[in-house]
Design a protein around this nucleic acid. Structure first.
Length: 476
RNA sequence: CGGGGCGUAGCUCAGCUUGGUAGAGCGCGUGGUUUGGGACCACGAGGCCGCAGGUUCGAAUCCUGUCGCCCCGACCA
């Protein structure tokens, strides 16, 4: 068994930390609550950025960069927003050895500083829509942190747009949620449920919030992305106005949306196993690793020649690495690359060279296949695609298996005290029911799912009439 | 901020009860033999025992304080 990795069944939380440590994705930092993203982890983030950035640009958005410091007066302009964020902000009081006249908040998100600029940039309806995205770090002073899932500082992408009408902003918020869903499912191989947050779970300052929710292997929910329709809640205090087609002066309708390095945590918790990290090929820094095996110098020359041939054959198509280090034995390398989640491993020894073959091992299934070098070179990309799809299918089947349709409070509490899972059940719409639910079961309404057809029933908590089922679960 | 645990070599930990000046395994360096699922031998480097006081002839060990970290809860992407 894998050294240094606690099994999921023994201690899920310890397993999560062990996988990160063994794969060298991140380290705890000297600063409490912060993390260091190591090269292996950062390479995953870069792959995500590459894929998502292309999608953001393809939908007409442009990248820009705004300051990390926000004047205190900006943050306090939107009442609900400041109530939501002020308690968890880091504040700079001194600079250049002097106390500042106005405190500077380290951005917890950039709505305020961006919209102060938007108000200067927008004059006419011809300036709309304004479609901006930024890749940045943000800081939120969380009480309890976990690597990738919740740290004081994290990396993310935040899109901010301004539109002429409610309908346009609504369409934008919806569109970007769709982009997130497609990204999560095709790149990260994580099936997600798109839906809408209840008022108590929405972003402070938004009209309403859309989200995608994913199920982890401990059956808990993780919010994988959010998209907010901000209405005119920010354009009014920040005076973001434009002269409309009918010559009247109006406030813009806005959206904001983001995903963060938290998604790396999701990838780990959805796909990995007791041997360590399992990465979807599209995110893997190395998609194929070759481990050569030899005894004699003569073997060594022949084996390395085949490795070179494969390297050349894959160049420009597949991210390939040959592990030619001589201080480690093949067995050690097998475990090493397994813990790092490399999708495909090739074992190439004298026997294989003689037969013109390689031994190929899939990280996701452990399946070993012997095939000719030519055939491997030909099939490599389709195999990676197959693994990508296989991971998604597996995660989807897992989610379905642990998703239940329920009507009884007793059944629900029993499930939450045991194996947990996603539950489709009715909700009357009252906040008091959400609070009672949270206090008694630690579960929350994750979202009002898009796929939930109106279905008259009764509220899981109070038994009063409900018009549709929502998703209940415990969440990260 | 509550509850629980832990700070001794890069990592995992032993030593502490009953004070006598620091150990193991892994890892690391050098040389050699090895190489199809975590190789072996030899030699070697590496620690003011989290920090600060106190008790004592003498403290990793006893006492007081303090700081930090991890896990579980309340808040959150």
């Amino acid at each position: 068994m894998a050294k240094g990795i606690t099994s999921r069944a023994t201690d899920y939380s310890k397993w999560y930390g062990d996988v990160i440590a063994q794969a060298e994705l991140a380290d705890y930092s000297p600063v409490k609550g912060c993390m260091v993203i190591r090269p292996n982890g950062y390479a995953i983030w870069e792959a995500m950025q590459r894929e998502l950035d292309a999608r953001i640009k393809a939908t007409g958005h442009e990248n820009a960069y705004f300051p990390i410091f926000i004047p205190e007066s900006f943050l306090t302009k939107e009442k609900e927003h400041v109530e939501g964020f002020a308690p968890e902000c880091a504040v700079v009081t001194h600079g250049g050895g002097k106390e500042l006249e106005e405190k500077l908040y380290v951005r917890p998100t950039s709505e305020t500083i961006m919209y102060a600029m938007f108000s200067q940039w927008i004059q006419s309806w011809r300036d709309l829509p304004l479609l901006i995205n930024q890749w940045a770090n943000v800081v939120r002073w969380e009480m309890r942190t976990r690597l990738f899932l919740r740290t004081l500082e994290f990396l993310w992408q935040e899109g901010h747009t301004a539109h002429e009408t409610f309908e346009e902003a609504e369409a934008e918020a919806r569109k970007m949620l769709g982009v997130y869903q497609e990204f999560a499912e095709t790149v990260m191989a994580i099936p997600v449920i798109p839906g809408k947050k209840t008022d108590s779970e929405k972003f402070r300052g938004a009209l309403h919030t859309y989200c995608i929710e994913a199920m982890m292997q401990d059956h808990r929910a993780l919010q994988a992305g959010t998209s907010h329709h901000l209405g005119q809640n920010f354009s009014k205090p920040f005076d973001v106005k434009f002269q409309a087609r009918d010559a009247t002066l109006q406030h813009v309708w806005q959206t904001s949306w983001g995903v963060s390095t938290r998604l790396i945590g999701a990838v780990i918790m959805v796909h990995s196993d007791d041997h360590g990290l399992v990465l979807p090929p599209k995110l893997a820094p190395q998609q194929v690793v070759a481990v050569p095996i030899w005894q004699s110098e003569d073997d060594k020359a022949k084996v390395t020649a085949v490795v070179k041939k494969i390297e050349d054959g894959l160049a420009g198509r597949v991210r390939f690495k040959a592990d030619l280090r001589e201080q480690y034995k093949p067995g050690w390398k097998f475990f090493h690359w397994e813990a790092r989640g490399v999708p495909l491993r090739l074992e190439i020894g004298p026997r294989d060279v003689a037969a013109g073959q390689v031994v190929m091992v899939r990280r996701d299934t452990g399946q070993k296949t012997t095939l000719t070098v030519e055939s491997f070179l030909e099939k490599c990309e389709s195999l990676l695609a197959e693994i990508q799809q296989g991971l998604f299918d597996k995660a989807l089947a897992f989610r379905k298996k642990h998703t239940h349709v329920m009507d009884s409070w007793q059944d629900f509490t029993k499930l939450m005290e045991g194996e947990e899972g996603f539950v489709y059940a009715g909700w009357c719409g009252k906040v008091t029911c959400e609070e009672k639910l949270k206090n008694e079961t630690k579960a929350t309404i994750r979202c009002i799912p898009d796929d939930s057809h109106p279905e008259p029933g009764k509220c899981l908590v109070c038994n009063e009439p409900s018009r549709r089922r929502v998703i209940y679960a415990r969440a990260y």
